[in-house]
């Protein structure tokens, strides 16, 4: 069963090649470790005419455990300013956590969720604890400690 995650990702890739929802486009899926998508919010919203780069990273426990998902932040890309998106690209969404993830979800389902999370944003502002979180957060969002995640409650 070691190859279970590659077989599942292969299936998902075939579905993605057959067509993706509007505003979601595959950029790169050369390996089964890392996929890149562009996300664009359609219609009128705070993020009109902006494209964001979304990175998925998989380990061999996928789909039993969630992929590591974050916005790419580099010289050419920025994370959206959003109450649930830290300036380092980490996303605070229950479906990406240990509690909310389930194998029913797919890569595209995650993309759609994040797209609609952006679309429903009323006010462009970073998370309250952004300054505290970003310098301490590890590079991989799946490795964030619990105490860092509950920090808004303590602050």
């Amino acid at each position: 069963m070691a190859l279970a995650h590659t077989r599942r990702l292969n299936k998902e890739l075939a579905e993605i090649h057959a067509g993706t929802p509007v505003g979601i486009n595959l950029v790169n899926a050369d390996t089964f470790e890392k996929w890149l998508f562009t996300i664009e919010v359609m219609g009128t919203s705070e993020y009109e005419a902006k494209k964001f780069l979304l990175m998925f990273r998989f380990d061999n426990t996928y789909p039993i455990s969630a992929p590591a998902v974050q916005f790419v932040v580099d010289d050419t890309h920025k994370a959206p300013v959003h109450p649930h998106v830290y300036s380092n690209g980490h996303i605070c969404a229950s479906i990406l956590g240990r509690e909310g993830w389930s194998p029913v979800l797919t890569v595209i389902a995650v993309c759609i969720t994040i797209q609609s999370m952006l679309a429903s944003c009323k006010k462009k502002e970073p998370p309250l604890d952004n300054d505290r979180y970003v310098p301490r957060a590890p590079e991989n969002p799946k490795k964030v400690s619990i105490s860092l995640m509950v920090s808004p409650l303590l602050a």
Binding site: M1, A2, A4, D59, N60, T61, I64, S65, P135, R136, A137, P138, K142, K143, V144, S145, I146, S147, L148, L154
Partner: peptide, 30 residues
Amino acid sequence: RFGQDAEDAANEEAREENRANERQNREDDG
């Protein structure tokens, strides 16, 4: 856990958590 204010403590904690997660991953590993 007790509330901590020193930056070092938090960094140390993050490293520790990393190790714990790695172990968890190994356990999850199919």
